[in-house]
Design a protein around this nucleic acid. Structure first.
Length: 425
RNA sequence: GGAGAGGUGGCUGAGUGGCUGAAAGCGUCCGCCUGCUAAGCGGGAAUACGGUGACAAACUGUAUCGAGGGUUCGAAUCCCUCCCUCUCCGCCA
């Protein structure tokens, strides 16, 4: 949420930010017009209320003195009716303004490259050399099939396409990846492990910014109006909804494994084969609640923590700084981590590390009290995937495959998986 | 799902129609005092939005005692609806 006062005072900067983010600025004019109208009416009701309060007190005094207050009571009866009518108008206007504000995305940070889409993104680092196999490499689909790790048809019978069933060693490998990542982040990076609910309320989902705009991408349970989480960011961030965090507790760092559910509306046709785009997948997510002064330092930290997963697994990846037009709704700045998949010769996004600044905190009223001034301020939220498993598995299989069709796993994974190689049965 | 109890400031907890934005305590901040610490003494401090003002200080208005409605000149206090928490019962992995 962008604060209304800020919009009022920095109209052109906000307009430009919205344009950079690929959103027409016309919503802004409407908000500003409504806001002006609103403030005018509010001033009007408030002065009526001020008068009523004053006279009502007088009535109290008169009655206590045993004197009549009939004239005052009568006059205020009329005023109260007027107030009621005006109040209704004000509420309706307020509701309109609030709704429109919820549809405004966060503004890009000044350091973010301006551009409309992926072409304007900036590769800021590449780690490792793209693997070149000396034999005819299999893509992940055939590896999954030949090694019998995933059963897509069974998943389709259960829930439709996009819901893979991991089987046998595939399930074990998936579990190994999750445990490896959780251990890394909790033991070495200092995160507190969370096991969150996988469903969240409309309000919670609004806090993190998926709603109202991305409702069509969410699975919802109609009888209770609960949403299946698209990422653990939703439950973790909302643990502190409406809370005031002591300044000395900052930063708070949490890591959670969760299943993630995404309808992926409108993305059919592309990447629908295999594990590249799913309706349900697993992810280990990092979430930090940080002091506003340090949020951009913390963003780099989270990014480093996410990168560490890929480093430990010896995978080739690159870091992409997203341009303004590619930023998600709530993000002010974001790095994507992309793994190299040799058989497909492509880069697969496995992590997004974003600074939301106070955008989510404002929607969810997450604040801290400053020790020096005693004032309440919004904290900043940072999160990063650390990381999502399906494409990680893709890169792992395609990179580690051998001429004989087996896959050699990275050493870091062996204690978790229990074996060094996955061999064809 | 059934019955009951309850939701008040950072926390605990008073408060059943006007003098309550809200007692008291804890915590907190400032000052004093004691050669350190603890204790003690005095004082300050809610949040949001609006107005005047320099997007300062300050002053001022309105709202806020779970949420939304209602009654009333006036509601934390009375009525209705909803949400949440706790206890007991039922059901259940």
């Amino acid at each position: 949420m962008i604060p209304l006062r800020f919009i009022r005072q920095h109209q052109e900067a906000v307009r430009q930010g919205l344009l950079d983010k690929g959103m027409a600025g016309d919503g802004l004019d409407e908000i500003l017009a409504l806001d002006e109208q609103l403030r005018e009416q509010v001033t009007q009701v408030e002065s009526l209320k001020a008068r009523r309060n004053q006279v009502s007190q007088e009535v109290g005094r008169l009655k206590q003195a045993g004197r009549s207050a009939e004239a005052q009571v009568k006059a205020m009866g009329a005023v109260s009716l007027e107030i009621k009518a005006l109040d209704q108008a004000v509420h309706a206007l307020q509701e309109k303004v609030d709704q429109r504000l919820l549809w405004l995305p966060n503004l890009p940070h000044p350091s973010v490259p301006v551009g409309p889409g992926a072409s304007a993104n900036r590769v800021v680092a590449t780690v490792g050399d793209p693997v070149r196999h000396s034999f005819q490499a299999q893509d992940h689909l055939s590896l999954l099939e030949n090694l019998n790790l995933v059963d897509f048809e069974a998943g389709a019978r259960i829930a439709g396409r996009g819901f893979p069933v991991y089987i046998g060693r595939g399930a074990r490998l998936e579990r190994a990846l999750i445990n490896f990542m959780l251990d890394l982040h909790t033991r070495e990076h200092g995160y507190t492990e969370i096991y969150p609910p996988f469903l969240a309320t409309r309000k919670a989902t609004q806090t993190t910014g998926q709603l109202p705009k991305l409702e069509e991408d969410m699975y919802v349970t109609t009888t209770d109006d609960l949403f299946l989480i698209p990422t653990a960011e939703v439950p973790i961030t909302n643990m502190f909804q409406g809370q005031i965090i002591p300044e000395d507790d900052l930063p708070l760092s949490f890591v959670a494994f969760s299943a993630c559910f995404r309808r992926e509306a409108g993305s059919y046709g592309k990447e629908t084969k295999g594990l590249l785009r799913l309706h349900q997948f697993n992810k280990v997510e990092l979430v930090k609640f940080v002091h506003p002064d340090t949020s951009y330092v913390e963003l780099e930290t989270v990014r480093a923590h996410a990168e560490e997963v890929l480093r430990r697994l010896g995978l080739t990846y690159r870091v992409v700084e997203l341009c303004s037009g590619d930023l998600s709704f709530a993000a002010a700045k974001c790095y994507d981590l992309e793994l190299y998949a040799p058989a497909m010769d492509s880069w697969l996004e496995v992590s997004s590390c974003s600074n939301f600044e106070a955008f989510q905190a404002r929607r969810g009223q997450i604040r801290f009290r400053r020790n020096d001034t005693g004032k309440l301020n919004y904290i900043h939220t940072i999160n990063g995937s650390g990381v999502a498993t399906p494409r990680l598995m893709v890169a792992l299989l395609e990179s580690g495959q051998q001429r004989d069709g087996s896959v050699v796993l990275p050493q870091a994974l062996v204690p978790y998986y229990g074996e060094e190689t996955v061999v064809p049965l």
